[in-house]
Design a protein around this nucleic acid. Structure first.
Lengths: 357, 357
DNA sequence: CTGAAAGCGCTTACAG
DNA sequence: CTGAAAGCGCTTACAG
């Protein structure tokens, strides 16, 4: 049912040396013997238990150093029922935003003593295999970023007792914790920025239709435009990739009524759009303004100088870790927290009069 | 000595329901009881042991489904002495090549039933903490990519019985397996390409001085130039970042004798170089040819259209997995395998006469 | 084909 | 402060 590797290494012989010449792993029993204490004292020493006399502690540590002992985190996990491993489920990283977030996460998580088991979802079908595997490995929690899971699937986790936190995503109506940028408010900000700068034919270049990120950005943008009496030109990018942005821009430029501003659902789409504009000889920002969302590192590259909404990634990650910390403590209801993005005005979009910078 | 989280969740009560309302994890004993078999039969069913009568197997599977049972991979690992977890140590991903490789790795590794525990090295000092942690988690092997470890540190792993494989890196003289692109041959290819196209003042923009990647690329380039009687202009980029490339290019352009071609130690440096050239109004490739190394996704973006050496990443990853597979089987000496790169001629460099494409 | 039992390397009440 | 012992959830000889 659940697939697994069937190769199993033959049990090690009892002796100090295995047949193949590699030494058997040193255990706390070995250390105890050398230090002349009980195995439980070795355990206490390494688990930071205060109930060890300093002198004993030194003796144990010395013996451990001599033997090259490392505690077995797997064995510890079995009994503490806590692996200190967090599973991160990420989409295939077509967009550079993913690896950027992933790296910051692993760093911060390690600072808090947690390890990261990574599950990248190759294509959509693969997500099905991921959850069972993550559960098998007894991750303390699952952070799901940029992947949309069915509620049924999330239910499986919850029933298995594995907390799930959505990052950069949320599921309205579900009782599942989420940390997200306020995509709607950010998009509204872009609408105001563009309109204030005098644009009259703004377009929205969509990302994947089924992503909440795209949905909220589109909604925030369109609503604000509508409130100010301006219609939106919509064009599908379909995916968050450079190529998709390039192609969607080409279609927009081919219209009889091309836009004078394009708000792209994500930075990577905007980069493709800017390159397409460059190839078509469309002057940016004089003839066309382009705005993205995320503020990936490339946004500031001089070939692009992309005006965009910066997601407060560091803050969002800290909030996620805060959620993780509170997981064992309380039994509080899962919360959805939205963090505001900041508009970073660079060179790819005309600025409203009186804009600083 | 080795730092660890000291919070420990209180042991679960024995009953079906824990005090906090979450159900105790279902174990093979629960399944056995419901199916009316011995616990070992449940184990055999899930470990793919053929020694289970089909009818029994069905009964076990049905009971497991009813209970929502998932085997505990941690418990299994303890006894099989094999976690099916591979540790990946990567550098801080300033260069987009890292995440690109990492993603391909996790996908392929999962296809072979392995999970990836990721360790990104924040800054250089952090590497020291990584290895002990990886060893504690009993990873089956450690893949080290784009990080240089001291031999002493690698020795620690080997003594602990954890195989280490270097990826995109190798340590001459050490008995440690490595999979690497033939950086030297690739760089020589670039030298020929540039000289054949008529360049007379080629420069080499270096990456980090201590990386084997940089060393080999520089050597391969310089040696071939020298063999053909051409001197090389050297400039340090120091790191594999866009900004470093931009700054190094600025210094090259400011020389009284600026180069007519720049071979950058990596693509990301080349992108910074191209943007700097653009800002300085230097026509590419007419006044300046720029060549990179890696072939990251951005290399084909139309703003750059970077000529570069493509590393056969897929092949290299497959080879790494082959190494992993052979780890338990034989006790063969670690091998260093070099894979040839391919020159991909795009628009950023003038082509020699008679070049196809 | 199946069961009973030992054991993987730890943690943690429970005594003292 | 320390030891003896039980037990985490599995796998795997060993019998039958």
């Amino acid at each position: 049912m659940i697939p697994q590797a069937s190769r199993v290494r033959p049990r090690n012989p009892r002796g100090r040396m295995a047949a193949n010449g590699t030494s058997r792993k040193v255990t706390s029993v070995d250390v105890a013997r050398l230090a002349g204490v009980n195995q439980s004292t070795v355990s206490r020493t390494f688990s930071g238990d205060a109930n060890v006399r300093p002198a004993t502690r030194e003796r144990v540590l010395a013996a451990a150093a001599t033997l090259g002992y490392t505690p077995n985190a797997i064995a510890r996990s079995l009994i503490t029922r806590r692996t200190n491993i967090v599973g991160m489920v990420t989409a295939s990283t077509t967009s550079p935003f993913q690896p950027y977030v992933l790296e910051k996460f692993t760093l911060r998580l390690r600072e808090t003593g947690r390890q990261v088991l990574i599950f990248s979802a190759a294509l959509h079908q693969e997500v099905d295999d991921i959850l069972p595997t993550a559960l098998q490995y007894q991750v303390d929690a699952l952070i799901i970023t940029s992947v949309t899971l069915s509620s049924a699937r999330i239910d499986t986790c919850v029933r298995a007792g594995t907390p799930v936190i959505l990052f950069n995503r949320y599921m309205p109506g579900e009782r599942i914790g989420a940390i997200c940028c306020d995509n709607r408010a950010g998009a509204a900000q872009v609408a105001d920025f563009l309109l204030d700068a005098g644009h009259v034919r703004p377009a929205y270049m969509a990302g994947p239709r089924n992503s909440s990120t795209n949905r909220d950005r589109e909604m925030g943008f369109a609503e604000r435009l509508q409130a100010r009496g301006v219609a939106v030109i919509a064009e599908d990018g379909h995916q968050y990739t450079y190529e998709a942005g390039y192609e969607a821009a080409r279609r927009l430029f081919a219209r009889p009524d091309p836009p004078d501003a394009i708000f792209c659902a994500s930075d990577i789409l905007a980069l493709g759009t800017l390159d397409c504009a460059r190839e078509h000889g469309i002057a940016v920002p004089d003839a066309l303004s382009v705005v993205g969302f995320d503020d990936i590192p490339m946004a500031r590259w001089s070939a692009y100088s992309l005006t965009t909404i910066r997601q407060p990634v560091g803050t969002m990650i800290d909030a996620t870790i805060g959620l993780l910390d509170r997981l064992d403590a309380t039994e509080e209801a899962p919360t959805v927290t939205l963090f505001p993005g900041t508009l970073v005005a660079r060179g790819s979009a005309r600025r409203p009069p009186n804009t600083p910078g």
